[in-house]
């Protein structure tokens, strides 16, 4: 991987080494899923469901997003989504909504870093 890209991804809260280990150092396989991450619809679905107050849809989307973030080692995003999942599991919709701002900034951070890759 390009050292500059590596630096950019790391700065965006992505643990590249951990992700590479999970893909058994198959870099092209990891990059394929990383670059496709912005197409993943779960983030948008989660935001919409939280807006609609639909706890079940929100939980499903959050749960899936957590899995993806964990697999790709999107550390910052993973932390926020995990907390969100727990609040939704406890039926704390208000508490979940409070995390929306943090969620958005971490998501943007990741997608910006990915968009800037060579």
């Amino acid at each position: 991987m390009d050292p500059l890209d590596m630096e950019r991804l790391t700065a965006a809260g992505i643990d590249v080494a951990d992700a590479l280990a999970r893909f058994m150092n198959n870099e092209s396989l990891l990059l394929r899923f990383l670059t496709r991450f912005p197409e993943d619809r779960n983030y948008a679905e989660l935001v919409r469901a939280l807006g609609d107050g639909d706890a079940e849809r929100a939980f499903t989307a959050a749960h899936t997003l957590k899995g993806v973030a964990g697999n790709l080692a999107l550390r910052g995003l993973y932390q926020t989504v995990s907390e969100l999942v727990e609040r939704l599991r406890a039926s704390d919709m208000e508490g979940a909504r409070l995390l929306l701002g943090e969620l958005e900034s971490r998501y943007e951070q990741v997608t910006r870093a990915l968009a800037g890759m060579r």
Partner: peptide, 14 residues
């Protein structure tokens, strides 16, 4: 698994 990334990771391992 319904998650394509998970399937790919596990398939890659085995």
């Amino acid at each position: 698994d319904d998650d394509a990334i998970n399937r790919a990771i596990l398939a890659n391992i085995f």
